[in-house]
């Protein structure tokens, strides 16, 4: 594994009013590394991911991405809240796939995938189109380019959303429970696509999922979250076969029973 650290959470806290959902998280993710976050719902996994995507601001602590502070910038030697310009610059390293897809309903499938490369990366229309078509081919939806999202199944929507995020070529991609909103019979097609991408290897992943087998399969490292702190982390097999904390044992046994 390469030793370059791409993402670094430094003592991150996040509160909503009196409720503290993250209580001092320290976590580094290497370039190309696939990290799976597991843990009970409400444990803070999603919040941690949303902080990285700049959808929410940390209450305390810093996040570094590719050597730059994400939420802060130095102006005249003083640390300040990042400007929109700074956020825009650093955010380009990160991509995200949402639980509820959030496709743009007023655009066709192809337009959904082409829009950001054209207006954010400044790509030429023809190039963006070619790239989008390739990506849609990869997720198996090349025949749906002119369809509007409303006419797609949940699994198809999520595959378009993955293509839409992939064409931006982020260094790390967040998958926030990408199959939780899907009907059971559609989960497989989405997991297969994510697996394929993971096998290509170059892009880092921050994966939040309840599909334990899947997480164990593709992750280089599994991080167990509980009540706003990291309780355990390590290679998947180690964590699965040899959980040290009682909380993880309970959590895992619940999944084993469920399957």
């Amino acid at each position: 594994m390469k030793e370059n650290i791409l993402v670094k959470y430094n003592d991150i806290h996040k509160s909503y009013g009196d409720l503290e959902v993250l209580k001092g998280i320290n976590l580094g993710i290497h370039e190309g590394e696939k990290v799976a976050l597991i843990g009970p719902s409400g444990s803070g996994k999603t919040t941690l991911a949303r902080l990285l995507m700049t959808l929410e601001e940390p209450t305390k602590g810093t996040i570094e991405v590719d050597g730059k502070l994400l939420w802060h910038e130095e102006v005249n030697g003083k640390l300040q809240r990042a400007s929109e310009k700074h956020l825009h610059e650093v955010r380009g390293n990160i991509g995200m796939v949402f639980q509820h897809f959030h496709l743009f309903p007023h655009m066709t499938v192809l337009e959904n995938v082409m829009e950001a490369p054209i207006s954010v990366l400044g790509m030429k229309k023809e190039d963006a189109k070619k790239d989008a078509q390739e990506m849609l081919d990869k997720v198996g939806l090349i025949d749906k380019v002119d369809t509007y999202p409303a006419q797609l199944s949940g699994g198809q929507k999520q595959r378009v959303a993955i293509a839409r995020a992939l064409v931006m070529r982020p260094k790390i991609m967040i998958f926030d429970e990408p199959t939780s909103a899907l009907d059971p019979e559609l989960v497989g097609e989405v997991l297969d696509v994510i697996k394929d991408i993971a096998k290509e290897g170059k892009m880092g992943m921050l994966l939040i999922t309840h599909e334990m087998d899947f997480a164990m399969d593709i992750a280089d490292r599994v991080v167990f979250f509980d009540e706003g702190i990291i309780l355990e982390q390590g290679p998947p097999k180690e964590l699965l076969n040899n959980p040290k904390t009682e909380r993880l044992q309970t959590f895992l046994s619940r999944f084993m029973n469920a399957n």
Binding site: T54, R91, F98, F104
Partner: peptide, 29 residues
């Protein structure tokens, strides 16, 4: 829906692009 704004942040649109390309076309309808 707020998810539309979030998706456009994730794709790194500028605030102006978010409003004009994503939010307004949907709001206009």
């Amino acid at each position: 829906p707020v998810g539309q704004t979030e998706a456009s942040i994730a794709l790194n649109f500028t605030p102006r692009q978010r409003m004009w390309r994503i939010i307004l076309p949907q709001a206009f309808v």
